[in-house]
Amino acid sequence: MSEQRVASRYAKSLLDLAEERGTLEQVKGDMDLFRKTLEQNRDLRLLLRNPIVKHDKKLAILRAIFGGKVSDITEKFFAIVTQHNRESALEWVATEFQSQYDVRRGMQVAKVTTASPLAPALREELNKVVREQSGLQNVTLEESIDESLIGGFILRVGDKQLDESVRTSLRKLRNSFNENPYQHHIN
């Protein structure tokens, strides 16, 4: 089973439990802290993925870093995940938790990458597309710029991606030229 699917199940379980216990906002804060810590600390990400490091050692490190900073539910969650040898999925759990939390709150976050800042008309059009696709009215666009796209955009909503960049179009065109069955070989 893929790490993403495992993470999705763990995130849903944690979300359900936190909601049931009335600590959803606190656990969400814990997952935000965990996600930010992982983003800023490559060594911790690599440690959690490392199959050589024993699971109890990984749990001890998680407790040392987050002990007293996160809720009991989150600490117990870390223990359960490490007991089931799924620490490598933890970095995805925090992201999945955020996505599922947003959906429960009727929010949809979409990431759009463009070669230059979005024009207001395109921003509104992308908002409209995401609202229609997700069925949710509260849409947030996270914008980033990647000049290597040359033009166009890449829109990512959850696990779906729409790539309308010039860079990708050029790559597809180049590949189609390479596969041209009408090439004549001169001997």
Rank of each mutant, 00 (worst) to 15 (best):
105 R>G: 14
118 L>V: 09
157 V>T: 00
36 K>D: 09
23 T>A: 11
106 G>P: 13
182 Y>C: 04
17 L>F: 07
23 T>C: 11
49 R>N: 02
118 L>Y: 04
156 R>K: 11
128 K>E: 11
58 K>E: 15
183 Q>T: 13
128 K>G: 00
106 G>Y: 10
129 V>E: 07
186 I>S: 13
123 R>K: 15
49 R>E: 04
29 G>H: 05
59 L>V: 08
138 N>L: 13
127 N>A: 07
25 E>I: 01
100 Q>E: 14
134 S>N: 14
49 R>Q: 02
89 A>G: 08
143 E>S: 10
65 I>L: 05
181 P>C: 00
178 N>K: 06
139 V>L: 11
11 A>C: 09
166 V>L: 12
131 R>V: 00
132 E>H: 11
55 H>D: 14
183 Q>K: 15
76 K>T: 05
21 R>F: 03
70 V>C: 11
157 V>G: 01
16 D>Q: 14
174 R>N: 10
118 L>W: 03
180 N>Q: 09
187 N>Q: 10
110 A>G: 04
162 L>Q: 04
1 M>W: 04
8 S>F: 00
128 K>N: 07
167 R>K: 15
101 Y>K: 00
183 Q>V: 14
160 K>V: 05
146 D>R: 00
159 D>P: 06
181 P>S: 02
11 A>D: 03
94 A>V: 07
122 L>N: 12
137 Q>C: 00
100 Q>I: 08
155 L>Q: 06
92 W>T: 02
153 F>Q: 01
9 R>L: 09
160 K>S: 07
102 D>M: 00
167 R>L: 12
93 V>W: 01
84 H>N: 15
61 I>Q: 13
128 K>D: 07
166 V>Q: 05
111 K>Y: 09
83 Q>V: 04
108 Q>N: 04
76 K>F: 00
170 L>N: 11
68 G>M: 10
61 I>F: 13
186 I>C: 07
150 I>D: 10
175 N>A: 13
23 T>S: 10
148 S>I: 06
43 D>E: 15
101 Y>C: 00
79 A>K: 08
51 P>E: 10
187 N>S: 05
74 T>V: 02
94 A>K: 04
74 T>Q: 02
169 S>E: 14
170 L>G: 12
46 L>Q: 15
109 V>R: 02
147 E>V: 01
184 H>K: 15
56 D>M: 04
29 G>P: 03
111 K>G: 01
7 A>Y: 00
130 V>H: 11
163 D>E: 03
129 V>R: 06
10 Y>N: 03
143 E>W: 09
63 R>F: 04
49 R>A: 02
164 E>P: 00
99 S>P: 05
52 I>Q: 10
173 L>Q: 13
16 D>E: 15
172 K>A: 07
